[in-house]
Nucleic acid binder design. Sequence first.
DNA 1: TATGAATGAGGATTCATTCAT
DNA 2: CATGAATGAATCCTCATTCAT
Lengths: 203, 203, 203, 203
Amino acid sequence: MPKDTFFNLPDDKRERIIEAAIDEFAQRSFHDARVTAITNQAEIAKGSFYQYFEDKKDLFKHIIEIAVGKKIEYVNQDMMQNMQDYGFFQLLRELYLSGVRFAKEHPRLVAIGMQLLSNQELYYEVFGTHAEKSYAFYEDLLRKGMADGELDPAIDIVLASRLLTMFNYALVDFVYEDGKVDLDDMAIIDKMLYIVENGIKRR
Amino acid sequence: MPKDTFFNLPDDKRERIIEAAIDEFAQRSFHDARVTAITNQAEIAKGSFYQYFEDKKDLFKHIIEIAVGKKIEYVNQDMMQNMQDYGFFQLLRELYLSGVRFAKEHPRLVAIGMQLLSNQELYYEVFGTHAEKSYAFYEDLLRKGMADGELDPAIDIVLASRLLTMFNYALVDFVYEDGKVDLDDMAIIDKMLYIVENGIKRR
Amino acid sequence: MPKDTFFNLPDDKRERIIEAAIDEFAQRSFHDARVTAITNQAEIAKGSFYQYFEDKKDLFKHIIEIAVGKKIEYVNQDMMQNMQDYGFFQLLRELYLSGVRFAKEHPRLVAIGMQLLSNQELYYEVFGTHAEKSYAFYEDLLRKGMADGELDPAIDIVLASRLLTMFNYALVDFVYEDGKVDLDDMAIIDKMLYIVENGIKRR
Amino acid sequence: MPKDTFFNLPDDKRERIIEAAIDEFAQRSFHDARVTAITNQAEIAKGSFYQYFEDKKDLFKHIIEIAVGKKIEYVNQDMMQNMQDYGFFQLLRELYLSGVRFAKEHPRLVAIGMQLLSNQELYYEVFGTHAEKSYAFYEDLLRKGMADGELDPAIDIVLASRLLTMFNYALVDFVYEDGKVDLDDMAIIDKMLYIVENGIKRR
DNA sequence: TATGAATGAGGATTCATTCAT
DNA sequence: CATGAATGAATCCTCATTCAT
């Protein structure tokens, strides 16, 4: 958690630091990332860095928090708050859609997230035991879909939640790599949902 | 490529080094991994390391080769060599099964592979442009399955190949994390294939 | 080129570093010279070294620049700027004299220069293609002397320029080795010039 | 001094080692030169090296001895043994000539010699106090020339001996650099002697 | 609070020399 | 005597973090 001094900073300086940090962490793993590169790009003194943050990890965690926050902004809040009014596949589509939009607009944050995923130690330090939260979310969704009779009762909910998560990654990955190419992202999502739907819906 | 001196080493010493390297590379990214940690754990002199390997990267590439070699051992070679005799879903099952067996027995190698995936630069240096090979393999499989009339003609082959790859990761991930829990892995694979099959088979 | 941090250093610390570097480079070839020896003698932290200089070579180049600068201080600037007003042998005497004075007072810089002379690669890296400048200078001087009718028209200018350069080295060498013995340096120069003059003057 | 084992070696192996050593020492300063490079090029085991030589310096000294020996071969032995029958300038010409021939044919040995010249510490260790021997030789020559009335009585013998030495270096240097160009070396020597003769002969 | 110099632990790599076979 | 693996001291350099102003 950054120190108060950081939050008292003029907006533009604070943003310059965040920008620089995102740049650096997107390009290099946490350990490889250099405080010096960040302070240079942000044009702040090296000493100042340690007046704003406890240490490198402190900043990193803050960047992750920002990423998580930004990610949440992308899901249709109205839809999330009135989940009961929507069908399972509608909600799933919305979730995937928001994931794609996010990845398109914040590719560096996605890169940082992927890095983090492949560093267990750091991952648990950042998210604690809340690691499974995202699975839990999909599990709830699946349970509701099943209760509503939309899903094939034979499927294993825990497994399916993993798959839906992975599908999300697959999509993000797909869009991320081809970021430059202006694919019709909607089309991809729908092709994917076509498969998913056939895979798990009730017949 | 390690030097001859390495291959001339007594088996147990060579294995101690490999073990130590796998341990270190499984825990830290390539850059973070320390030659010193490896030589310490393997109980060899730091100088010896450089008589066996060109440099840290040389060892890393060797470890990757070992991992790839081990991975290949796990797939049913008979089945792979007579692919035309098997149905699409049979082959897929075999592939996933081998992936799971491998991950169960070599979780550290899996960890190293995941690390590598998230380091583009290194990845290309290790695999050259053969990067897309695994996608290509699934694409071929899907094309054959479609030609044989096993698959829904409406699905997008490129996208599906990504999904099948991701499913593989999902499985690996599943098994990897819950490695300690003695799940009935067969059951998981079959549950997953149930979904996949419904998702893409011809009706 | 040293970093700004170096030039911002308090004078005495900066000088301590320069002193230590001159000591080390005078005793060992560039490659043999140890950064550690310099930081130890200068009593600065090893890390500080790299805040002042890009690397060892950066410091070395700086030392060479200092030496060249110091060397130039020793020639009679008035005489050099009004060369046309002086005779060939007067100018030559002045040049040799400055060379001797310089060597007497900065024997370590002379040693460094000699080292550099015997390392082609480094030499070109430090001086670029200006390598032949010193020969060229003597050639110009000789050409002028010949045009003014002071020199024997039979002598080969290119060869003579080499000889004059060598004479300079001879003198430096002479003074350098016997540095402690308080010879009458003027006398030596004049004895040498007596020979040179007889060797090349017009009769 | 190499060990007996070295001298008992079959000729071709011994020569391979000498060749490799000359190559390495000609390219790098004593300290930079690598025993490994020598054993590799000579195709002997690293361990063998230390059965032939005490250490790196031992080999180096031997190479220098070889160079000195070779150098001596190049001077007209008949002339040297009957010095009293020849004039000063005749002898000088012969000396320079041999120097040039040597440099033309053994450029690597010359390079090693020059390296050595610029490493005081090593120089004294190799030559001990015999350092001035070459000066002494020229001094004797000059004294004889003066006694015979060939030289200007006004010149300083000590100084002149240094100059003659330097002239030798100048010649070697000249020929060494332009090694490839097939200059008429005789012509150069004579042009130089023309200057030298005018510089110091009796009038 | 801002600054940027100072620090030193830590990392990769090289290489002369020793040693066991 | 030949071999070549083993050794570890030594070297350059990086970088997070501390500290004094």
